[in-house]
Write a protein that binds this DNA or RNA. Structure first.
Ligand SMILES: [Mn+2]
Ligand SMILES: [Mn+2]
Ligand SMILES: [Zn+2]
Ligand SMILES: [Zn+2]
Lengths: 136, 136
DNA sequence: GTGAAAAATGAAAAAACTTTTCAATTTTCG
DNA sequence: CGAAAATTGAAAAGTTTTTTCATTTTTCAC
């Protein structure tokens, strides 16, 4: 993630490293407020604004994706792959990516039914992760 | 929508009728602020709080669904069907519902790849609506 | 390495959005 | 028609995000 940032021409700064690392360590996705807290343990002077700015950059680079959950749409999870989606555990919130989305038929059907030319989609799955299932 | 509201035991009030009608008239989904403006043309005294409260009720009843778009997650569109998703035009923002989502294979594959037990999903498609395509 | 230019930072203020409170009004129903 | 219950909306409070701008940090050419 740091590498991609500098390859995209952004400076390598302490603040950004803190945000990036805080993000990487989160299994569940993290809000800007979460990232400020976690990030400050790595760089005490970190400011909330920089968290927002770093997220914006990472999102544009496709390194991070916003999660849209029942209780809010302000958390972000890392996104290594190109086209992929997240599956989110309803119990522990663990968010993992999965690739290989074979959703073409659904898109075609939607297109046929509505007349829209479908160009992109947003898909998020919710369920229970393996660890949480074991605990039951 | 009004019928469903009263069947669910809610009073039939001028404020709610204004919000409901404003919502029904919106092709693109509407934010609470939009609904206040539009709603006030039907009931001048309408308050913003009532818009929020009405949306909350309608959402719980499944009559309205939140849209999650690039520029924000605060607009709502009516939702007649049970399980359905919206397709949103990137040009004019028209949001239409489509039913008949055959997405089971994708869910199974995601489940196999991640080990999650998938219980629900959120899907939104983006593209160009028929009217906008004609204009090109 | 040095130093100037460019980029980035963060505190504070402003803006935007949402929720809570509560007295007053409206609706329901016997 | 009342009385009780539900609803309303202004205002205040709370929350989140964006803007500003003086200062600091990073980069890069020498
Ligand atoms: Mn959202
Ligand atoms: Mn579906
Ligand atoms: Zn879990
Ligand atoms: Zn359109």
């Amino acid at each position: 993630m740091l590498r991609a940032l500098s390859e995209a021409g952004f400076s390598d700064t302490r603040a950004r490293r803190a945000v990036v690392q805080a993000l990487s360590e989160s299994r569940t996705g993290a809000t800007p407020a979460d990232l400020l807290t976690r990030g400050r343990s790595l760089h005490a002077g970190l400011g909330q604004v920089t968290v927002y700015r770093t997220l914006e950059i990472l999102e544009h680079l496709g390194l991070v994706r916003k999660l849209h959950q029942e209780d809010g749409c302000s958390s972000y999870a890392t996104s290594s792959a190109g086209h992929a989606h997240h599956v989110i555990c309803r119990t522990c919130r663990a968010a993992v990516e999965f690739e290989g989305c074979r959703i073409e038929e659904v898109l075609h059907e939607a297109s046929a039914r509505t007349g829209y030319k479908v160009e992109s989609h947003f898909l998020e799955l919710f369920g229970v992760c393996p660890a949480c299932r074991r605990k039951k």
